[in-house]
Amino acid sequence: MTRATPTPEGQVADAVSGNWVDRYAPEAARPYLRLSRADRPIGTWLLLLPCWWSLMLAMLHDATPAWSDLWIAVGCGAGAWLMRGAGCTWNDITDRRIDASVARTRSRPIPSGQVTVRGALIWMALQALIAFAILLTFPPAAVILGVLSLGPVCIYPFAKRFTWWPQIFLGLAFNWGALLAWTAHTGSLSWQPVVLYVAGIAWTLFYDTIYAHQDKEDDALIGVKSTARLFQEDTPRWLRRFLIASVSLMGLTVIGAMLPGANPLALVLALAGPWAFGWHMTWQLRRLDMEDNDRLLMLFRSNRDAGLLALPFFAAALLV
């Protein structure tokens, strides 16, 4: 008989197997890192990727990459990790009673008793303050945008209580970096990052509807709304619409960022980014099984790769 691998004490049910938090982090820090989803890094990627898309397209727009852009990229990375952690902490504080009623989430630090609400509030504030210190190194317009991003972050946890479309509110929060990174590079906001922002919201509707299908039965029992419950068997058709919208709007952003006067080869290379992104989303759609939770989680996590696929083509266009 094969002996089962022991589960680390306090491990969250949907954490990545063998993650660094459960294996290497100091024991006292583990509950707080789990609260920040450090053991589930996909959310940081999904928050960061719109920042990097937007930064690279801003560099293509004005053809003036600078060393300061390296700091913007690094600062967005650190800020995404911290603000995703702060946002998840806020989400778990507000959802602690709901999480205790859902099989997949009752092992999270607050409902499982690993962290008190007071401890979570202090941890959230610490992460937000460090992120704010990083934000202050960006131009003033970007700082203002960063502060405004707190609005959708605060509202999102409550959205599933009053709308069937909480994924829109998640998209508003998770894709704010498309506005911020462009503004950090150029010093001002323009229509191109706004279009990219909407493309990101469509992408969020795509991947988070897939994710929400894991909880649809529990959500129905406790009265929580989601696009997964709204679309039901019609989900593949809606996902296809979100795919088309996201890819088309990203392509429009590329064209708007580079024309007029773009090098034709650079334009073709940059437009290959949305194509590669859309190819991966099509791959996900073809493998969708709404009753297989392991498949749903795998597809959701694979959106890191979908978002990363666009970046090499944007980088290649910068080098032409």
Rank of each mutant, 00 (worst) to 15 (best):
R301Y: 10
D294Q: 13
G18E: 09
P312F: 10
I155W: 15
D208F: 10
T204V: 15
R84I: 01
D215W: 12
H280N: 05
V74C: 07
A159I: 08
M298T: 15
G200H: 08
I130W: 10
D292V: 12
W67D: 05
V194W: 09
A181W: 07
P6M: 05
A173I: 06
M258W: 05
G223L: 12
P65K: 07
L189K: 11
W203N: 01
A315T: 03
L299G: 01
M258I: 04
L136V: 13
A125H: 11
A128E: 11
L299I: 15
G146A: 05
T94N: 11
R240Y: 08
G18C: 06
L296V: 10
A220S: 12
L296N: 00
D305E: 14
T186A: 14
G10L: 08
D99N: 12
Q167L: 08
A257M: 13
T183N: 03
A142P: 00
C154H: 13
I210W: 03
S248H: 08
H280P: 00
M59A: 14
L179Q: 12
A15T: 01
A141R: 15
P41W: 14
A276N: 03
A276K: 07
S190W: 11
A310I: 03
R295G: 02
P236F: 08
A315I: 13
R23W: 04
F132I: 12
W81V: 11
P6Y: 10
G177M: 08
I134P: 00
V16H: 14
H280S: 02
